[in-house]
Nucleic acid binder design. Structure first.
Lengths: 253, 253
DNA sequence: GTCGAGTATTGATCTGGATCAGTTTTAGCG
DNA sequence: CGCTAAAACTGATCCAGATCAATACTCGAC
């Protein structure tokens, strides 16, 4: 923890109370004074470049990380070298919860584009719960939501078609962008077809074909990584039998 | 019946400190006095019969439940009526964590056989963290483990063959039984082929065929719900490319 | 600008496991 | 005990999506 990055820190130091993400993030439901206390332990390091790691499998667990801008993907490496994406994390979403159990990270987290994260040392966060009523419950809620989201994805992977999986993925992104103040119908994917496929348990060719197919059906307009949803209803209808996991994937955070 | 009831209730009132599961359960890492405090809030209701519900989707969230004896399955109901199993829970394992987020349960939990559970009112559990150092961290660890386990299952569902899935499932059970003092090589399945299939994202026919196949390969001896693992090494080898999720599924709890 | 490497698209083929269908076994019950 | 319904097994067929293969596009480096 060097203390000589005064200049870059100033540029990055958006206090939690001034941060547009506060309603989605850890401070949710805390009052102004409490947020100041939380703010005091948050470390704001310089942004990561595309490909930079927040942490890697096996690293000692010290902190949770909240995405401020950009996108983080979490993934595990299989023995044969191939990687499996386990999550995409947008601004306001927390990364690193899997590290609490064994005190070391069980997956790796890397930036898909230039990305800024807020580092929250977990030991100090745990201490803060004694002086901030509600913070403990907020953390339990956050972890419960993570469990819910993963359950939703399990259900999706267990019994849905490729079409349903991609539709659910796009709708999840749509809702999450919307919650963050961006357009729910037009956005850029920061991940490759390969990464989408890995996350959804599909081959990259299948993902590519589905984009083409959705475009032919006038559900989407696809230009490389730029997506425009033309017919939201039709996209929802593809999931009519999957409302359970859809609800879960659309959880507010 | 009335006479028996008293006796059986007395028999059920095993204090946490005398419970054989304490090393796997919430009291893990707490000292004797702390366990007494925890014990004081735990409710031990009469056992559930096969098919009885611990809670159902939409119920208000009040408590976590720890399986004492028997097995609980958690599942969600799809709009079309079919159900999707999301977990099987053995003695010492906690059920209900998904309810914290929205203050209501998002899945249902029912007994697969006669099953006793310890009910832990969550509000009181949260209060207890202020007087029991370490309990908060233990709860965070517990939830982190849940996230880890679900991630492991996601990976399994995303990219593994039917054979690998069933092998991983059996090995997971084996380890969990072993941790609970039972034989790791011989046990009874409390769930149907249908339920195993639902959990693993397979058709019940596929599960049935795989049991036959494993038996032909002298990996297993299968007699209806009774399983004997004849060749543990071969079962492991089926997962050679899947060590990541194997580790996760074998998490101590 | 050209080059080259990564990424995406599209087509052709193959296959694991779903689905359908029929049979057998088991468990529950009057 | 036999009757019934659910669960399990087994065989035959089919198809969604993987895999293999070839081509096209994008973008940064020089």
């Amino acid at each position: 923890m060097p203390k000589n990055k005064v200049v870059s820190l100033n540029k990055l130091k958006v206090a939690c109370k001034n941060c547009g993400l506060a309603k989605l993030c850890l401070p949710l439901g805390l009052d102004s004074g409490d947020i100041d206390q939380l703010d005091a332990i948050v470390q704001r390091n310089r942004p990561l470049h595309r490909g930079g790691h927040v942490f890697q499998t096996g690293d000692k667990f010290r902190s949770l990380y909240v995405v401020k801008t950009g996108t983080i993907k979490t993934y595990t490496q299989c023995p044969n070298g191939s990687e499996q994406v386990v999550g995409f994390h947008l601004p306001g979403e927390v990364v690193g919860l899997d590290g609490i159990e064994c005190d070391k990270h069980l997956c790796s987290a890397k930036a898909l584009e230039t990305t800024a994260v807020c580092e929250v040392p977990f030991g100090r966060l745990e201490e803060l719960t004694s002086s901030i009523p509600g913070l403990q419950h907020q953390l339990f809620r956050l972890m419960s939501r993570e469990i819910t989201k993963e359950t939703g994805l399990m259900v999706l992977l267990g019994k849905s078609t490729a079409e349903e999986r991609l539709a659910a993925f796009l709708l999840s992104l749509s809702v999450r962008f919307h919650n963050r103040g961006f357009s729910p119908v037009e956005f850029n994917l920061s991940m490759s077809r390969q990464e989408i496929g890995s996350y959804l348990g599909l081959a990259l060719e299948t993902v590519s074909r589905l984009f083409t197919h959705f475009q032919e059906e006038s559900i989407l307009l696809v230009d490389r990584k730029h997506i425009k949803i033309l017919d939201m209803d039709q996209l929802y209808n593809l999931l009519s039998n999957q409302t359970t996991c859809l609800d879960r994937l659309q959880a507010p955070n």
